[in-house]
Design a binder for these strands. Structure first.
Lengths: 248, 248
DNA sequence: GTGTATTTGTTCGTATGTATT
DNA sequence: TAATACATACGAACAAATACA
């Protein structure tokens, strides 16, 4: 056995076995894998060989090790398609997750320079601001803040509170459709507040998306920022710029 | 003075003043602001009040503080348009930065499962792998790893080393054009190696982009992963799917 | 490498004004 | 009016990271 020529290295075989174990659900997301010692006993190899396999899996984002704690199966990142027509709930439903939304706070206040610029308003004009949390299977996936021109949509906040959906609320305010005109993405660290809401540790990486949604007449209707939990969401850029009207 | 009714808090006025100073170029990107002590003397307020202003500016990404060192004007994040036709150098030139590229290592080896799947190969088929660093004005912006099918492009690595451009190298290998078929984005923490190359601190947020480029016949020609320094790059999603042929 | 000064980060405490209950 | 909560502003001291001789 050990002397026979082998095509694949032992560590790769181990990594593949563990990967299959995870795929089969033997170890679920968030579960702790057996210790390196237990695994090296199970596979009859040196601990370093197991470590090599685990390192490979960690680099591929399949597991992540915490010194002193163990090796844990990574949360399966939720695929989140992003494009000109992005509707959160529809996406999640498609990926078989139970979507949810929690409105954290709403207010109407004067706009700052950035918000006014993005929405094409004079600075100081009133805006509706709505902070919330997007959930998938009960787990927080993203924080969002949406800023709307208050003058154009006087009743929007009530609609959002009632409808529990931005798309529906905008439609009730006369915006039949909207598309994403621009999106800017950066990786940031979670600040304490974000970490609390997203149930991350402070400093954990988050993906910040800043976007402007416009109505068919190309007028900005929403200036939105979304902070995605880095290890729980993967944004996928789709080509479907001409995509169908998947409206929730 | 102090008793007069004031509409805006002191800390906001200070933040605005400093923001204007930065906008006017009094403090340029990367410059160190005066110390909190100096600023509190300049504005005649308590250090906490200055800190409040600086904290606000930091939250808006305008400055960032380093304990023991000072508060520095943020490098204007390099806008990095991402879409079906993304050419790194052309983008940087457009934004007025001197682009650069450094090839860190190249090798030809057997593909793993993921690479083979992405490139449409049988697992184990040989691939060229090229690791490198993308620079803007001499500063590292991103790490990249490109994986190519070796059988189809036997001379590609030599071309890359000679041409110093993936686009040119692929063209020399008979690929007149290619477009981005899929992109997946996540926020991760920089591991020690990445932090070293990108001159970040370990654990700093990075934006990982995994993409597949295909030729006009829709055959995958490159499976690429790019790790962007989170605070130095902003990905912008553009609508220009029909964009012109900006080829380097 | 060591020690020291500098600079930001954090945590106490104090006081005031304003808005809400 | 009283009680409460919250944001603003100031003061002092210490901790932690950095820069530099």
């Amino acid at each position: 056995m050990t002397s026979a020529q082998r095509k694949t290295p032992v560590w790769q075989a181990i990594a593949q076995t563990l990967t299959e174990d995870i795929a089969k659900g033997r170890y679920g997301p968030g579960d702790k894998l057996p210790t390196e010692a237990e695994l090296s006993a199970r596979f009859g190899v040196n601990r370093h060989t197991v470590r090599h396999a685990l390192k490979d899996m960690a680099e591929n984002g399949l597991v992540h090790a915490r010194r002193g704690a163990g090796v844990f199966v990574a949360q399966t990142p939720t695929d989140y398609p992003i494009g000109r027509r992005v509707r959160f709930h529809a996406n999640l439903r498609k990926s078989g997750r139970l979507p949810g939304k929690e409105i954290l706070s709403c207010e109407t206040r004067a706009s700052d320079a950035r918000e006014a610029d993005a929405l094409g308003l004079e600075q100081g004009k009133a805006v509706h601001v709505c902070n919330g949390l997007s959930l998938g299977d009960g787990q927080p996936l993203a924080l969002f803040r949406s800023v709307f021109p208050a003058e154009r949509f006087p009743t929007l906040l009530d609609e959002i509170r009632a409808q529990h959906s931005v798309t529906a609320a905008l439609r009730a305010c006369g915006v039949a459709d909207y598309t994403r005109a621009s999106t800017r993405l950066t990786a940031k660290r979670a600040d304490p507040t974000q970490a609390l809401h997203l149930r991350l540790r402070e400093g954990d990486p988050i993906l910040r998306s800043v976007g402007i949604n416009v109505d068919p007449q190309n007028h900005p209707v929403e200036y939105g920022t979304t902070w995605f939990a880095g290890d729980r969401v993967t944004l996928t850029l789709t080509d479907d710029v001409t995509g169908g009207s998947e409206v929730l």
